[in-house]
Design a binder for these strands. Structure first.
Lengths: 210, 210
DNA sequence: CATATACGAAACTCAACAGTTTCGGATATC
DNA sequence: GATATCCGAAACTGTTGAGTTTCGTATATG
């Protein structure tokens, strides 16, 4: 689970005395960190908050991660991404059907949490490139890849116009949801998302209203 | 210029003794604050940095604004917005021409600076609703209004499809530029912007390639 | 059962920073 | 020219929070 501060134990020859570290707590601590991050942002987040929310001691956290920055980086990197197995993505026969299936409630709630985390991190991006990399890999890239897949399939079946720029089209929804939530401070209602598909994505893809 | 901490002097009857406050320094200080904000984000920004960049004393800043939060709020609120006089917006006869005219270099650089400021502020917006309001009024709303105007004119002349959702379409470019810069950490090149217009905005508006 | 490490809790150190005060000098009113 | 306020510079205060250490206890190896 923990990717970047895995086990300080060297490879092979350390017999290891004493009580063992309870690694089942790692994900709990990382989840607590993500919660606090989403609520307060990176700078507002304190290690004590995370420890309290995880019902752990501060020393326990510092035994596992070297610094606040390391903890956050690991929490973001270990975050569960959206479906990365394309064969499990919706396959309704139309792009509209697939996109509608992608905005089921749990998916949207997951995205909103990730947006809050992103909001708490954006100001760090220029200072910690590693963090930006991890956030991109965990939150933005998987979603973009899923959209690219659905759109390529649509193009292959001749539904989408042949000269459509999938690279650009696949970013529309994520971009506009982010902007709406972060800049306009409105919620991404289902109504908004459906309208986005029907009024922007599908027309831009050259798919007439059905 | 200063909107929110204008003059502590009461209305009318304060004869005012002593050296007068040099209000020509206000915009210089606010500009310095915006620079630091864009570079370091709200939490990374210190009053000493702003004072140093403005070549002013810390006490001078606190004589004019009650707190760091007030200073930032005022700096954002006093920021020069994009053209708010619609009659001065481009008017080329086609939506494509107008949109291309909107992405001249100075406009784009101004937008990038504003994006960096936005990035330094987003994590605050849940904590300081006033700041969010000011940022929206200074940075997002004027741009959206300009786009709505250009698009409504295009629709009126029968260029854009009659059932197009201007509210949604006018947010496409700002959304996708923000996402690209803040989340994907790529620059908004002219090539990207032109492609955005030709591959997303115009097709979504039902305007065929010329 | 001796030793070594993990645990949560809490006390501790140290640096950064918001906000205040003080200073010597400049500029305004009366 | 007396007084009041401004200025920039710098010293000062108080709080917050990252990171460390200590303590009593739990759990592992040998």
């Amino acid at each position: 689970m923990t990717l970047l501060e895995p086990t300080p134990a060297g490879p092979g020859l350390a017999p290891k005395l004493g009580r063992k570290r309870d690694h089942t707590r790692d994900p709990e601590i990382l989840d607590a960190a993500l919660d606090v991050l989403a609520e307060t942002g990176y700078d507002g987040m304190t290690i004590d908050m995370v420890a309290a929310k995880a019902k752990a001691g501060k020393a326990t956290l510092y035994r596992r991660w070297d610094s606040k920055a390391d903890l956050v980086l690991d929490a973001v990197a270990c975050m569960k991404p959206v479906e990365t197995d394309f064969s499990k993505l919706p396959n309704t026969g139309t792009l509209r059907g697939d996109l509608l299936a992608m905005i089921k409630t749990p998916n949207v709630q997951d995205a909103e949490k990730k947006l809050k985390i992103m909001a708490g991190i954006v100001s760090m991006i220029s200072r910690y490139p590693d963090l930006a990399e991890a956030a991109s890999a965990a939150m933005v890239e998987p979603r973009a890849a899923a959209n690219r897949f659905l759109m390529q399939r649509s193009k292959d079946r001749g539904e989408m116009r042949a000269d459509a720029d999938i690279e650009a089209l696949s970013m529309i929804s994520a971009s506009m949801v982010s902007y709406r939530v972060l800049m306009l401070r409105k919620t991404a209602t289902r109504e908004f998302l459906v309208n986005l598909i029907d009024q922007v994505v599908l027309p831009a893809a050259g798919i007439a209203r059905g």
